[in-house]
């Protein structure tokens, strides 16, 4: 099973029970001052939030747990990993605080403990340690009173989402967000409004973000070997030329003479 969440924004009444459940489950302290956070309600102390979309629609925002996450590919020490179960989890013991994951995430999800002297990256981990491992669903989906956000297997949820869209084709935008963008995600959305605002009004490409660096990273060993070989070769050629210039009759003769003598 691949753990996933489907959020149907048409069912959300904006009660923020999921936000409260998340804060309780993960024992998150009160929020950070505004100067350090974006205006979407997410912060190191709020791993999920309900934002108001176009037309007053309530849309729940959280980590998308991409199938090929940019944050995992960018972390130089491998502190972020995509687990087999689905969630992208964070190992605070490995982290060195470079914040490259925050720069790389196309959804702008990872947040930082800006008020701390010893800060860590914070984001939704789908209640991996406290619930998912023990076979329970995340706190947010459990708390939702209208079942607007539900937990399940990713493939089944995609089927369910499409069935809902088929059922009410006039209501929904004919699209499951998270199915394809940047390689797909474990957190899916269906909605009656365009959810482009979640990605800062940009249409994300279908190919995963890490693919863009893959080419450059694969070239690294070859570049190194090529440059070193070229430099060594140039050095040899130039040395030889100079020797030939100094001893126009050839540099083999004196060496042979020396070795003979």
């Amino acid at each position: 099973m691949h753990a996933a969440i489907l959020t149907d924004t048409t069912k959300c009444i904006g009660c923020r029970e999921c936000v409260i459940a998340c804060k309780k489950e993960n024992r998150l302290p009160p929020d950070l001052p505004r100067r350090w956070s974006r205006d979407d309600g997410l912060s190191a102390r709020n791993w999920t939030s309900v934002v108001e979309g176009p037309g007053g629609a309530y849309v729940r925002k959280q980590c998308r747990h991409c199938l090929e996450p940019a944050c995992v590919a960018s972390c130089p020490v491998g502190a972020l990993t995509k687990t087999d179960l689905g969630p992208v989890v964070y190992d605070a013991r490995k982290c060195m605080g470079c914040r490259y994951c925050m720069m790389a995430c196309p959804y702008g999800i990872p947040r930082y403990d800006w008020d701390q002297t010893v800060p860590y990256i914070r984001k939704c981990i789908l209640c991996y340690e406290t619930r998912l491992k023990k076979g329970r669903q995340p706190a947010c989906t459990e708390a939702c009173p209208t079942k607007a956000t539900i937990f399940g297997d990713r493939d089944e949820l995609i089927e369910l989402a499409k069935a809902r869209i088929r059922e009410k084709p006039d209501l929904y935008v004919h699209r499951v967000w998270g199915e394809r963008e940047v390689g797909g995600a474990s957190v899916l959305y269906i909605s009656d409004v365009d959810l482009k605002f979640l990605t800062y009004n940009r249409e994300l490409p279908p190919e995963p973000m890490p693919q863009r660096t893959k080419l450059a990273m694969n070239a690294v060993p070859f570049t190194f070997a090529g440059v070193v070989a070229a430099m060594a070769g140039l050095n040899w050629i130039i040395d030889r030329r100079r020797k030939l210039q100094e001893h126009p009759e050839g540099d083999e003769a004196p060496q042979e003479g020396r070795s003979n003598g």
């Binding site: 972390c75 130089p76 020490v77 490995k94 060195m96 470079c98 890490p210 660096t213 893959k214």
Partner: peptide, 12 residues
């Protein structure tokens, strides 16, 4: 940590 925890996919 970069010495012992490797992620060769990362440019950083």
């Amino acid at each position: 940590h970069m010495l012992i925890y490797w992620n060769p996919h990362s440019p950083l």
